[in-house]
Computed example of a mutant assay.
Amino acid sequence: MKTLTVISPIYNEESVIEAFYTELSAVLSRLVGYHSTILFVVDRCTDQTLPILRRIAQKDPTVQVLALSNRFGHQMSLLAGIDHCDADVVVMMDGDLQHPPELIPAMLEKYEQGYEIVYTLREDARQSSLFKRWTSRLFYRFINWISEIPISESAADFRLVSRSVIETFQTQIRERNQFMRGLFSWVGFNSVGVRFRARDRFAGTTKYSLRRMVRFGLHGIVAFSKRPLQLSILAGTIFAFFSLIYAVIAFVQYFFYASLPSGWTTLVIMIALSTGIQLICLGFIGEYIGAIFDEVKGRPHYLVSEKINFNHE
């Protein structure tokens, strides 16, 4: 019998976590040929999520809980789950019930056909705002333009992976700023996509604020493309060229025209525009230097404060 572990990163989901566990365990109990466990990775919460999961794990020995000591973020929670998993097959999904557990059997069918990564392509829930859908589409189009690694506009952190893929992440892919959606595309392996429609939120609110979404997007850009640095060089070259042309014009005006101050507005506009471009380029450079700084410090990806039902450790 093969082993299956469902990894679910959790943060402040007290209003939905019991319903998610009930629905997921019902789906897993109907699987044939798999011994299933659920691994909840709890980013340090400010509500009652962890006490609820303690009670669930006390009653159900197939539920494991990995409590992190601080809020390390969604991607590091996924990595923590990967590091503490030794199953033959792993499914990663959010615990807010927007990722439907009933899709797991279809994903396992693809795995049985020989696919080592079964990723999902999300169709947004009806309650998703137009702004969120538009910005998400714009981000993925931008990152696909600047990156050599294709990432689907509908990509979600709901996927199935084989043991060999898990071992790759456990032993070889250890960078600090991990952008999982890109990394699972980058590693290759035999992959296939499955479409699903995201549900409306059962309860609670999204944990991705605009600020966290921007940080998430910047991590993806820095992790998978050097093109912003190359574009900085291009922008500098273009402005240097126009500056040279303007210098020639100013030189001619100085000797042949008395109305030299008339170009003052043009000069101010060019200085302001070029300064803005320079600051944007410096910002991109700062992001890359910050990523290097994180790698050089060599801090742990995450810290664990509590483990529940990890009997073999």
Rank of each mutant, 00 (worst) to 15 (best):
G193W: 11
V165C: 05
R159G: 00
W186F: 08
S154I: 00
I271V: 15
F158Q: 05
T206V: 06
S232G: 14
G236T: 09
Q172M: 03
Q178A: 07
R176M: 02
A155H: 05
I233M: 11
S225D: 12
V165Q: 03
Q253D: 08
L244E: 03
R195K: 14
L234W: 15
A250F: 07
N177I: 01
M270D: 00
A250D: 02
T237H: 13
T266W: 14
L244I: 08
Y257H: 11
D200W: 02
V192P: 14
N190I: 04
G188F: 05
I249D: 06
L260Q: 14
A156K: 11
G204L: 07
M213E: 11
M270R: 15
F255N: 08
S164F: 00
Y257T: 08
L244D: 03
V252I: 14
T265E: 06
L218K: 02
F179L: 02
A156Y: 03
V165H: 01
V268I: 15
T265V: 10
I249N: 04
F256L: 14
K226M: 10
I173T: 01
R212Q: 12
A272I: 11
L210Y: 12
S185F: 00
L267F: 15
R197G: 10
E167K: 15
V222A: 08
Q172W: 05
G204E: 03
